[in-house]
Amino acid sequence: MPDSTAIVQGAEKAGHHEHPSYQRHHFETTAQQFDATNFAMWIFLLTEIMFFGGLFMAYLIFRNWYYPAFVVGSHQLSMFWGTANTTVLIVSSFTMAMGVWCAEKRLKNGLVWSLILTFLLGLGFLGIKSIEWTEKVEKHHVPGFHYSIQSFTNPASDPEVYNEYHDNPLPPDMAAHTQVYFFLYFAMTGMHALHMVIGVGILSVMIFRAWAGAYTGGHFTFVENFGLYWHFVDIIWIFLYPLLYLISRHT
């Protein structure tokens, strides 16, 4: 759509042309500027797909190698918190999308409130994440010197999980491989949480800039591209949730 219009408008306004203050001089139209920035943002997100893709690939291969360890490792995760966090993140994506809509419609108050809600939901996600991580620390399920395989060599010693799944004891060597599961668990949820922390940090600045009217004067590219980042982080969680929480509940 804007490709053809950009050429036509460029032909009309050859030479020095009038444009809004937020349009960089080397762009013919604001639409062209928007598309170029949008394209750049997507290229960045593709590098992010490759980055997380390596972690997903490692999870896939190690789950096949040490399948029994990955099954019992996954049984340590809480369905309640995992599902709650998925819901929180999806709702935050909605509030972010509404923020983009408000910026496009030049609704300053709507944008500020959308960003505040997204910010709070992002913090809520990180709060739930910290509850889950704390439990792993308490049960010595963080890989390293203090790691304990007791929940896996003697499942009955962990009644809360045992009453739900009735896992059979694993031999010590396979039980030790649950460390690989938890290593990948912390690597993947940790990298995801780092992206959330960065996102929440950027949001905290955006809220004040939006309040000052920075994005509702017609130039909403920053809100749009931050929205792309936020939705991308949501998509990563959309895949982490089934892989870590859901697919190993039986067998």
Partner: peptide
């Protein structure tokens, strides 16, 4: 003349329908 010229604004109704589908799918 609103916003970045020729820019397509997706309606909030679309966002609402999508988020409801996403929650149902979850």
């Amino acid at each position: 003349p609103h916003g970045e010229d020729q820019h397509h604004i997706v309606s909030w109704r679309v966002y609402l329908v999508i988020v409801l589908i996403l929650l149902a799918a979850t």
